[in-house]
């Protein structure tokens, strides 16, 4: 029973309340850094790390933070873990650090993290909060990987830097440029809606 509940929290973040496709949170990094799968994966995992740590911490401190100053307190806790992630990436994955650029410090203002702090971590014990962070983080990572693989595949004809199509392939450069982010995400969401609508029709 207990294990069931744990799985439920993780799966909730992955599918039912997927932060990108369902809750529509954290749009800026989703649009900006999904030009290649490596970037998407890196950003997703960095955000997952921050989500798990901040969720656990906020959950531990939930009885001590006065509700009036809770938002600044949460932001400060989140900023601490983001700084840690930033320093770790700079030390151990410098090329990723450079290609994500300003979007690493901007994890602080990623609405997913603050939203989970407010709506989940501040009301639950540390273990479920950690699981929620994991589920949400993986849901975010999954969405980033889906969008970035579409953009990398059609925009530069590669996956993880390896060429997929033959030499005759003309990459659609617009997809890796700024407008492609908006359009790819819009079409991906439309596709998900369409699949769900047609499923409903079958039932």
């Amino acid at each position: 029973m207990k294990q069931n509940r744990s799985w439920q929290i993780i799966l909730n973040g992955l599918f039912n309340e997927n932060p990108t496709f369902r809750l529509v949170l954290g749009m800026c990094p989703t649009l900006a850094i999904t030009t290649s799968v490596v970037n998407g994966l890196g950003m997703g995992l960095a955000a997952t790390f921050v989500l798990i740590c901040s969720n656990v911490f906020i959950s531990l401190l939930r009885d001590f933070i006065p509700s009036k100053v809770r938002i600044p307190a949460y932001v400060l806790i989140i900023a601490t873990f983001v700084t840690m992630a930033e320093l770790l990436l700079e030390a151990y994955a410098y090329s990723l650090y450079q290609s994500l650029g300003v979007f690493i410090p901007l994890i602080v203002v990623n609405c997913i993290i603050l939203a989970r702090a407010e709506s989940f971590a501040s009301k639950s014990r540390p273990w479920p909060a950690a699981l929620d962070g994991l589920g949400m983080g993986l849901g975010f990572t999954g969405a980033l990987v889906i969008i970035s693989s579409l953009r990398e595949l059609f925009g530069s004809g590669t996956i993880l830097g390896l060429p997929v199509f033959g030499e005759a392939f003309q990459p659609a450069l617009i997809l890796v440029a700024a407008p492609g982010g908006f359009i790819t995400l819009g079409l991906a969401m439309g596709l998900i809606n369409w699949i769900q609508n047609s499923r409903k029709g079958e039932m």
């Binding site: 529509v24 617009i174 440029a177 700024a178 407008p179 492609g180 982010g181 908006f182 359009i183 995400l185 819009g186 079409l187 969401m189 439309g190 596709l191 809606n193 369409w194 609508n197």
Partner: peptide, 23 residues
């Protein structure tokens, strides 16, 4: 608008076209 694109998706696509204009 096609049912599946209503709401958020069409807004994103419109934003994408706007971004092309800003190019």
């Amino acid at each position: 608008i096609p049912a599946a694109l209503r709401g958020f998706p069409i807004t994103l696509i419109a934003a994408g076209l706007m971004a092309i204009a800003f190019f």
